[in-house]
Design a protein around this nucleic acid. Structure first.
Lengths: 160, 160
DNA sequence: TGATAAGTGTTATGGTATAACATATCAATG
DNA sequence: CATTGATATGTTATACCATAACACTTATCA
């Protein structure tokens, strides 16, 4: 599964398909994909970058969909809880899932210059980390794997 | 390099040696290991767990070493900047380095039950993550690798 | 249709972090 | 050893991130 985010792609489809996939999943699983929740997901899908809860809240407020912090946090809890979005711990921010519907253990590549975030998938049980977990006899429940650096475009720009 | 934290060890030596190693490094590199900085490192070394900046600040305040948030954050910036301590993004908290002086890319194993944090070392350029970085042509500058779950003792307790 | 669960609106508050500026101390050298 | 530039500290104020708690509404389903 290649990382998604830095390369060019059909972004309109990206937004539409993301929302549609979430809607279909909710439909199939008896979850309520309410206007607030849909709108928050769409806002996140508009950029492959992480957005703070208050930035999202500002958007909701403009659109009359909610004015208080819990409104944003509840929608984000729902979206992250069902895998439609992820929290980026390093940024205290949120991003739409790029691999909607697929089972995956996300890893994030965060460009410190343009703030674009790409989502890759790595199994924390593999490799050196997996070995460390076994050596420590540690039961893994959640993995946070986030790397910060420069995306190809920004590295080039830096040199210029 | 095995993870440090869950197994038994000589903890008094742990505190003393950690502070001594930092002092020696500062001495050798013209850095000022001031009382505030030393004390913050000692406070962190006292437990193999992550502490919030305000928890540390409370300790400093009791001891008359500072009362305002910037005092704690500055000391923590110094300690993390020189590798004497690490920031745990998942917890918005800080922990003393367990591999003082060694070059390492830390990964953390966080027990959600007892809050002990073990530090392992994994090279983010290896394995699946390394492959994803190369595939995205991403320049890594910093890696955050933190896993949450249960340490051996707490898993056993849970079953009981 | 009544009971229960799930979602929304709102107030208030708590936890985390830093900007900005004044003062003090250190470290090097002329 | 006085000057000066860099580093460290003290302090105020503020900004950002997140959730508890409670009232109310809407959906779901027996």
């Amino acid at each position: 599964m290649p990382p998604i985010g830095f390369e060019h792609h059909d972004h309109a489809a990206c937004i539409h398909d993301g929302a549609a996939a979430a809607a279909a999943y909710c439909d199939a699983n008896g979850l309520q994909f309410t206007p607030q929740r849909r709108r928050v997901l769409e806002i996140l899908l508009e950029g492959h970058r992480a957005m703070g809860a208050y930035e999202i809240l500002d958007r909701l407020r403009e659109e009359g969909l909610g004015a208080q912090p819990p409104v944003a946090y509840r929608a984000l809890d729902f979206l992250t809880g069902h895998g439609f979005a992820h929290r980026i711990e390093r940024l205290n921010a949120f991003i739409a899932c790029s691999h909607m519907g697929e089972i995956h253990a996300p890893a994030f590549l965060i460009c410190r210059r343009c703030s674009v975030v790409a989502e890759a998938s790595v199994d924390p049980r593999h490799g050196e980390l997996g070995a460390a977990l076994r050596e420590a006899d540690f039961t893994l429940e959640r993995a946070v794997i986030e790397v910060e650096g420069l995306c190809p475009a920004c590295r080039t720009d830096d040199a210029a």
